[in-house]
Write a protein that binds this DNA or RNA. Sequence first.
RNA 1: GGCCCCUUCGUCUAGUGGUCCAGGACAUCAGGUUCUCAUCCUGAAGAUCGCGGGUUCGAACCCCGCAGGGGUCACCA
Length: 474
Amino acid sequence: MSTPVRTRFAPSPTGYLHVGGIRTALFAWLVARQVGGQFILRLEDTDKNREVAGSAEHLIASLKTLGLEYDEGPDTGGPYAPYKQSDRLDIYRTWAQRLIDAGRAYADPYSPAEVQAFREQAQAAKKAFLYRDHRPVNPPAWDGTQPLRFKSDPKAYSWHDAVMGDLTTGPEVVDDFILVKSDGYPTYNFAHIVDDAEMHITHVIRGQEFISSMPNYLNLYEALGLDRPIFATMPHIMNEAGNKKLGKRDGAKDVLEYVRDGYLPEALVSFIATLGWNDGTTQEVFTAQELITKFSLDKVGRSGARFDEKRLLWVNGHFMRELTLDELAKRAEFFWPESAKKAADPYKKQVLSLAQDRLKTLRDLPGLTNYFFAEPAANPALLTDNKQLKKLESSEIDRLMAAARDALSTLKQWDAEHIQTALNELLEKTGQKPGILFSLIRIYTTWAPFSPQLNDTLALLGKETTLKRLSIYQ
RNA sequence: GGCCCCUUCGUCUAGUGGUCCAGGACAUCAGGUUCUCAUCCUGAAGAUCGCGGGUUCGAACCCCGCAGGGGUCACCA
């Protein structure tokens, strides 16, 4: 029996989740889901200075909104609870003691200022700072008020990364890093290894920024007598300019903000997945289900990908068009214009069926549909900016509008098909080009720069409204 | 500066020695779908595969060097 796959997403509650974080979570989720394994959420809240109130809840909301449900986590519990590091301090202390007993950890006797001086020395010598160059010969017993450091055993390493391939480093990068801070909290470097072991995590999927710490982790796995999990290192997602990893400081948006801006979660998921991954075919968009069956870590690229909102917009439009009308109606609920508040659901659904192809995001809804719910304000610029219409005499406009009213008012059956017939007859009767006649009617009934097909628009507007709007003009 | 990683159209990418004078998608432009906008369809333009050496009958693909970019060198994760 092979060990069940268990992956985790382990953010620290220091703010919201942006696309970079979500992608790591998504890939970990996919790796677990595709083999029926477990996906775990673990909160790495060991730095109380950086902690932001409410961000744990925000993180959880983000995962849930995107459909990345986890099997074990701080709010759901599980066999290895608690899933919040600040509640696991005893566990780290136990593991730290093992290291001390084995002579692989010692108290750091230096003050922060002294360590800083060492660091500056190294910097001045244009060398990388290595604490172990200053390793104390007779460190004091650890009383919990000093940092506890790992006594490293520097050596060269080579290891396999499911994404990056075979990686190697020399002994010069292994150092005596801090295991437990003077405030009693463990560092990430220590805590994540302990927790991954305790929680039987099989795949460690994380961002590229950790790759340089790998030799230290490898050294610690050995000191602790632990088997290495499978490592998968994700390249960074770069900002739009392509010169930096995407980060909150450079305006990386909260994923939930995209949802608020009218993006569909499934579009976000597909877009984020294909930022650095594809299945080797020409398929461009994927449902979550397709991702679960097709995803594989070895098809993840090694170079950073830029975040291109234009492409996201297209992916979103694609998923919007795929939605059934009922589903679209559900998603649109909070995006209707004020004027639609009192409209009946069946009517709104009909509006949606006309608007669906034109929606890039749900946010476009008000601008595209307002005139179906409220009397539009006349916008003469629509006439004067139009090359053909601005040349028309007002008497000609009067004539055409009167003819349109006559033709439409006598219509017995008010539906798109009959309206189209009437419109075609009107074309013949008035001898006008559709470019002029139809445009005119469209503008007087909607006062919008664009709208769905004229006959569909009028059909939905209704006979009474159509005739009323055709009567009110200058 | 040391160490590590990366480098194919503007962007996301396919591509693992010959079928690649490099394929798809987004974006752009042009045309079509009896009015607008969008959808949809068709087409155009767009990459000396970072540069320089090698290996080979043959290289985007293998090797070496260089350059550029990114990451890291915290009592942050």
